Simulated assay, not measured.
Amino acid sequence: MKKITLILEILKLLSENGDRFLSTTDIYKELKRRGVLGEGKAERKRLQRALSDLYKEGYVEKKSDNLRGKKPQDWKLNIEAFPYLISYTEEELISLFTLVSFVPKKYRQLPILEPALNAINRFGKFLDSEEKEIAKESFDYLPLPVERYNRVEKETLELIFKAIIQRRALIVSYKSKQIKILPIKIFHYNGTFYLLALDGKTKKLRTFLVMMLKAYGLTEETYPLFYWKRYKDTFFTFPEKPFIFKVELPPDYTAYCRPEHELYLYPTQFHLKSDKEKTLVWLVGYASYRFVSWLILDEVKALYPPSEEDIELAKQKRLKRIYPDLSLDLSKNLVRYRVFLKELRRFFEVRKKLFKNL
């Protein structure tokens, strides 16, 4: 019975430690503190035998096979041997339900997300079935009226995931053509899944609609980590040159805020100032249709071109670290701002017919 107790306590300790290694010495000290092991060489040997037995059966992993001298071995739990025994703490469970609230309900019904939601149910031992149901329905997401939705194949997403983490080429069918691609990342924009990947032949960067893509299998070809590091922060491949400008919003946009609130009215906002008359937001903008259509959803009262003061503020905020393509030259920012205004006017011209008929 003592041996079984020791083995269970070892597994319990290693599971608490997650994917990190623990040395034999640290395991012994902690189990001694918990009253599982006593003092002396005999107890240390008992621990070593138990760890060796667990390793032989594949329940634990060791860090090195070539230890020399008296250096202790490092151990961790073999997660694959216990796929259904891991549990979440209450803190982790609350965090996961909060994360779920960022996912629209339609997407929660996708087969690819079903295992994740089932895992929350299975691992959430702090909640009974009724509490889990209440929790799932109480962390919700209200989509924008113009937010899109499309189904994606579970099998295709699984193959893309493997290709990304293993940096391997993937054979896919896209718009009736079979091609080889090097997947970099999947991203979600306005209800739609996209895949950023390099063309297998030309190495040209492309953005694919995942709903139009069918993956057939991985190849043995791998691509260098350099590609992933270079493009991991890229989204769409069409030109979107960033620039700095300001927008004015009504004062009631921030009327409910206190100084301690961290309020972002736009994802690219880097400064905000508000008083009883107006709310000013400093933004990194893009001279593209995507940015224009997104911006006019708000009650914007005025636009202000970039100024020397804005450039200085951008330098203080070290925006180049976040937006590498951003220029801190005022003249270049003004040129990009004018291109943005041109795109904005074109956007409104297209919609004049609708407005005239209202």
Rank of each mutant, 00 (worst) to 15 (best):
E16P: 02
F21V: 01
L37H: 03
R46A: 14
K32D: 00
G18H: 02
R49F: 13
A42P: 09
K29S: 10
K41W: 12
G40K: 07
N17H: 09
E43A: 12
K29F: 10
Y28E: 08
L22Y: 06
K32L: 02
S23Y: 00
K41T: 12
E43D: 10
E30I: 15
V36E: 01
T25G: 10
R33N: 15
R20H: 14
F21P: 00
A50N: 05
E16C: 07
K29N: 11
R46Y: 08
N17Q: 09
G40I: 06
L37Q: 03
E30F: 11
Q48I: 11
L22V: 06
G40S: 08
T25C: 07
G38F: 04
T25A: 12
K29I: 09
D26T: 08
G35R: 03
K29W: 09
R34C: 06
L22T: 05
N17V: 04
K32R: 10
R49S: 11
L47S: 03
R20S: 12
K45E: 14
E43M: 06
L37W: 06
T24K: 09
L37M: 09
R46I: 06
E16N: 11
N17A: 05
F21L: 04
L47D: 03
K32Q: 08
D19S: 12
G40M: 07
V36W: 00
L31T: 03
L37A: 03
E16H: 07
R44S: 11
R44N: 09
E43N: 10
E43F: 01
L47R: 01
L31G: 00
E39T: 12
R44V: 12
G38H: 07
G38E: 06
V36A: 03
V36F: 02
R46N: 12
Y28K: 13
G35P: 04
G35K: 02
I27S: 01
Q48C: 10
K45Y: 10
E30Q: 15
K41R: 14
N17I: 05
R33Q: 14
T25S: 15
E39P: 13
R20W: 09
G18P: 01
L31F: 03
G35W: 04
T25N: 15
E16A: 07
L31Q: 03
F21Y: 11
E39K: 13
V36M: 02
R34M: 09
R49Q: 12
L47W: 07
T25F: 13
E30V: 14
G38A: 01
L47Y: 06
E43L: 05
G35C: 06
L37T: 05
A50T: 04
L37D: 02
G35H: 02
I27E: 00
K41H: 12
K41G: 10
R20V: 06
E43R: 09
D26N: 13
A42K: 15
D26E: 14
K32I: 00
I27W: 00
G18E: 00
R20F: 10
A42N: 14
L31N: 03
G40H: 07
G35I: 05
S23K: 00
E39R: 13
Y28D: 07
Y28T: 04
T24Y: 04
T25V: 14
L37G: 02
L22R: 07
R34I: 03
